[in-house]
């Protein structure tokens, strides 16, 4: 059976999105050690910040994306400082439940400020060129380009800068990093900032791909978690690969199963992954 190349292209688009969002989530998880359900709502908030800049203030989309990203980063830092940091000495599961409360708050703030109607960015709708039987929509190309740029920058940050190397060290073993003189408290703020920026960018990409809704991030959360767990929680490279595996898997599955069941692909891959390789694809999970 030959698979339509369009599905693979679509899979690359969705995969880029999941990979980027998964990278942000896994970075946060690596250092903070709890599952943050509000991450999906950071994504949505970032997307709506960009919407406000783009539609309300009539700014060009590129500027709006930057504003959205900064807003998302600031939001994650504020939420961490105001809420999560008060619970850092508690069990990770308490933090998970706290993040549920936080998700309730953020999502309903969005509903009050921006209503529940679907919203769209003011970007020109253009037809994409097509060759080799694949149609390349401009927003799809933009999503892949954005994601590759951000992934590249993050790679440089994590491997070439002192702060990035400290982040990886602390994510690997927080106590050891602290013993070696790394200020892990300050690092948590930096990582919240980076995680929030990435979440916002992923949310904006999601909004560009279709539209903005208050629960957009929450709905996207399951494949993102699947990617993170598949790649091994806390392993940045694994999360990116996991994201592409799930994105392409979901889109290609359309050739075999009804498209309504696309989201199930992530779940099935997740369960298979958990049962066969509980430490992730590369066995480098931090727990």
């Amino acid at each position: 059976m030959i698979i339509d190349p369009q599905f693979i292209w679509n899979g690359l688009v969705v995969g880029s999105l999941i990979a980027l969002a998964g990278l942000g989530l896994t970075l946060l998880f690596g250092l903070l050690n709890f599952i943050n359900i509000a991450y999906g709502d950071y994504m949505a908030m970032g997307a709506y910040f960009a919407l406000a800049a783009n539609v309300r203030l009539d700014l060009p989309i590129v500027v709006s994306i930057l504003i959205g990203a900064v807003g998302g980063g600031a939001l994650a830092v504020v939420v961490h400082k105001a809420i999560f940091s008060k619970f850092m000495d508690r069990d990770p599961i308490v933090l998970l439940v706290v993040s549920i409360g936080m998700a309730f708050i953020l999502r309903n703030v969005i509903r009050i400020v921006w209503s529940t109607d679907p919203r769209y960015y003011a970007v020109p709708v253009e037809e994409g060129p097509s060759f080799l039987g694949i149609t390349f929509l401009p927003e799809q190309v933009a999503i892949i380009a954005m994601s590759l740029i951000v992934l590249g920058l993050l790679f440089l940050l994590l491997h070439r800068t002192r702060i990035g190397i400290a982040m990886r060290a602390a994510s690997d073993d927080t106590d050891l990093a602290r013993l070696r003189g790394i200020d892990t408290k300050r690092l948590v703020i930096y990582i919240s900032l980076v995680g929030g920026i990435i979440a916002a960018l992923a949310g904006i990409m999601l909004g560009l791909d279709s539209n903005l809704r208050p629960n957009m991030g929450f709905i996207a959360l399951i494949p993102i978690f699947a990617a993170v767990i598949l790649g091994g929680i806390g392993d940045p490279t694994g999360a990116v690969i996991g994201g592409y595996v799930i994105g392409i898997g979901q889109e290609v599955s359309v050739a075999f199963i009804p498209s309504e069941y696309k989201p199930v692909v992530g779940l099935v891959l997740l369960i298979i992954g958990l049962l066969t390789r509980p430490d992730g694809l590369f066995g480098e999970a931090t727990r």
Partner: peptide, 17 residues
Amino acid sequence: PYLRLIIIGVLLIAVLY
């Protein structure tokens, strides 16, 4: 309807704290 969900979120966090 949204305000009351925010209240539940705040209450949840406050009780845990």
